[in-house]
Design a protein around this nucleic acid. Structure first.
Lengths: 190, 190
DNA sequence: TTAATATACTAATAATATTAGTTTATATTA
DNA sequence: TAATATAAACTAATATTATTAGTATATTAA
């Protein structure tokens, strides 16, 4: 009965790997236990159960996403910062498909960590929008639009949406630039 | 052993109801069988299994979504048509939350019906974009952008994204109008 | 009317999540 | 250091679910 030295973080990392390898659906406690050389009831020492694990994955994903996007905007501002951040967002979704699934497929009960992580992402968006000098409400509307666009493109990619002979990368560039143009226009109209 | 007169369509409708009532996760063959006053193995006369059922739900959702959006654009054109269609899209997602979950949470294997339904939706978008006289590629990019926006708002709503004291409806109006403005600007620049 | 088919059933199996209770390695404390 | 407490693994057992195999009967077709 050797101690395996497991902890919650180890479980999370392994679970995310499993999800990335073969999809979130194939993440089971049985599979995770096998990967960690442990019997599945042992996992309950670190996690309340499968829903808890998946919820934790959601938070974990959000943390990594915030890291990735934060890094992408260092030393940049304006449209350049936004585009760089958006590219980082999509690169992340592409590189961690299973984890990103957890981000949008899991029905997370409101958990404190989750709210905190969400706020971090929101703050990042808010700060990057500051130079545009939109009002508070319009800033939030714009953020929601950008977030929706990004999430749409990410899932579009995961679901092989529409015609694959049209480069997704081009679509993203088109969509973001179109949205930004409209945003600028809104401002000059005001 | 009375015949219940079940068929695939009946199963689909009942399954969608279950999903709407308590979420896609709670749609199990056991629950569906109970709802239909039948033992769960009987369902296999009409459906290959749970993955098949969920895949069929995806197609079913797409059909209803196409109907709803098609109706919304009758007698309208230009921005008015787009806005009306988008509102119908979001109304649908709101009114059939579980079914809409199937639309984006189920990993559907490529099925002929699914491709057909996808093309119908795409065609609808293409036709509504015709008056804008964008080129073929730009039309597709614009459609992907709109679709992404819509899907983003729909899931945003289902996941209680960001601050709920800011009206989602306003955000949608802002986002769509911003995107359309950018689109128009693209055209006048060309 | 008879034969074929489709639809329901029961019974059984396998996979999973989860709980209860046990053992023992590790950490804490006297 | 020795005794104790805690935590992390375990085995065993249960419940739920999906799914398959095989059976009976209602309905349909010949």
């Amino acid at each position: 009965m050797a101690r395996m030295g497991l902890d919650r973080q180890t479980l999370l990392v392994a679970a995310a790997e499993l999800a990335d390898e073969s999809g979130l659906d194939s993440l089971t406690l049985a599979a995770l236990a096998q990967k960690l050389n442990v019997r599945s009831p042992s996992l309950y020492n670190h996690v309340k159960g499968l829903p808890d694990l998946k919820g934790a994955l959601t938070v974990y994903c959000l943390h990594l996403l915030v890291d990735a996007t934060r890094n992408a905007v260092i030393g940049k501002s304006g449209d350049e910062a936004i585009l760089s951040m958006c590219e980082a967002y999509l690169r992340f979704a592409r590189s961690r498909p299973g984890l990103y699934e957890a981000f949008y497929k899991v029905n997370t009960q409101q958990h404190e960590d989750l709210e905190t992580a969400k706020e971090e992402l929101l703050d990042l968006f808010v700060r990057i929008m500051e130079p545009y000098q939109l009002g508070e409400k319009e800033t939030l509307h714009a953020i929601r639009g950008l977030r929706s666009l990004l999430h749409g493109y990410a899932t579009l990619e995961q679901h092989r949406g529409f015609q694959m002979d049209l480069e997704l990368e081009e679509s993203v560039q088109y969509g973001l630039r179109t949205f930004l143009k409209g945003m600028h226009l809104n401002k000059s109209e005001a």
